[in-house]
């Protein structure tokens, strides 16, 4: 119980929960580092045009004179091409910047849509219970037990690869995770007395769901949405890697890695997998670390310190 601490204080210190969260977040070094990288990456993606202008290289042009060795092999990182060139003599850095645009757009867009759908369905299923819950809950189970990649393959083979299809597939297979979490939370929140209190005051279901329940879901919504972004990015990259995502020659991280893997060209040009691979890895890592940091900052009681009150003695 920490409540009495504020009672004894004569001056009312209004500690806003936002401010507290921010303060805790800023104290988390790993989280801060992850956030910085994400912001840098966003700047890199937004500034892809600037990168293009600065290097003077287009993302699509094949620099056969400067970008390829006399034997037709790609050039390694150097002054002319900071991250080297690919098998066709294109500038890897510029393509990475445009690829970041694609990856981030797809990852963020798909997560937001999936989160919206998942939260809505989770809320309805959890709050109303009964048949609504049975139908929606079972639907979630069903979607979760569908083999994701295989069905994506089938869809792509029919409709052909495209950005919209990628987003749709990611959304379709990822809303269930957050939907389940929200449903579970709502079921327990629904039975809490404060919801009963609102009901006894005459509040309607919509009012209860939005005013009473939704604010209590902010932590899982923020955390799960953040953690869905790297999954979306990886999924898109995987699709592109299998040749089913972004249509070449449009730059995408997965596509770049796929081109590096075909003909095993990466065995002689390490930068073709190490650089996009590392950026992809650090991106997903950053989003995951940020998600963890957000969880810790938003809900400090929910972490291991809680159970046995174990805190490393400082």
């Amino acid at each position: 119980m920490t409540a009495p601490a504020t009672d004894s204080a004569p001056a009312v210190v209004q500690r806003g929960s936002f401010e507290l969260t921010l303060r805790r977040l800023l104290r988390d070094k790993a989280g801060l580092l992850a956030l910085s990288f994400i912001l840098l990456l966003v700047a890199f993606a937004l500034g892809a045009g600037v990168v293009e202008a600065w290097t003077g290289h287009s993302a699509f042009e094949q620099y056969r004179d400067t970008g390829l060795t006399p034997t037709g092999m790609p050039v390694g990182p150097g002054a002319e091409f900071l991250f080297g060139t690919d098998g066709l003599g294109r500038d890897v850095m510029v393509r990475l910047a445009y690829g970041a645009r694609t990856s981030l757009t797809i990852g963020v867009l798909a997560s937001l849509i999936a989160s919206f759908i998942g939260v809505s369905i989770g809320l309805v299923a959890g709050y109303f219970g009964g048949w609504a819950d049975i139908v929606l809950g079972r639907t979630m189970d069903l979607v979760m037990s569908i083999p994701v990649l295989l069905c994506a393959l089938a869809l792509v083979s029919v409709f052909g690869p495209s950005v919209i299809l990628s987003v749709a597939v990611i959304v379709f297979f990822s809303w269930t995770t957050i939907g389940r979490v929200i449903r579970g939370q709502v079921i327990s929140l629904r039975q809490r007395d404060f919801v009963q209190a609102s009901r006894s005051l005459g509040a309607g279901p919509v009012s209860i769901m939005i005013i009473d329940i939704l604010p209590n879901l902010s932590v899982p919504i923020i955390v799960y949405t953040t953690m869905m972004i790297p999954n979306g990015i990886v999924f898109e990259a995987t699709l592109s890697f299998l040749g089913l995502g972004i249509v070449p020659p449009a730059p995408s991280w997965g596509g770049m890695l796929a081109e590096a893997a075909s003909n095993s060209i990466y065995l002689v040009a390490w930068w073709l997998i190490m650089i996009p691979g590392a950026i992809l890895l650090i991106t997903t890592l950053s989003f995951n670390i940020l998600g963890d940091a957000l969880r810790d900052a938003l809900d400090p009681s929910g972490r291991p310190t809680r159970k046995r009150r174990k805190v490393s003695k400082s």
Partner: peptide, 23 residues
């Protein structure tokens, strides 16, 4: 029904659970 809500009120057992922690 809505107006009857004004006549009857409930006070719950768990003083923490009956108050929305986020409001």
């Amino acid at each position: 029904w809505h107006s009857l809500r004004k006549t009857v009120q409930l006070v719950f057992q768990d003083p923490f659970g009956s108050l929305n922690p986020r409001r």
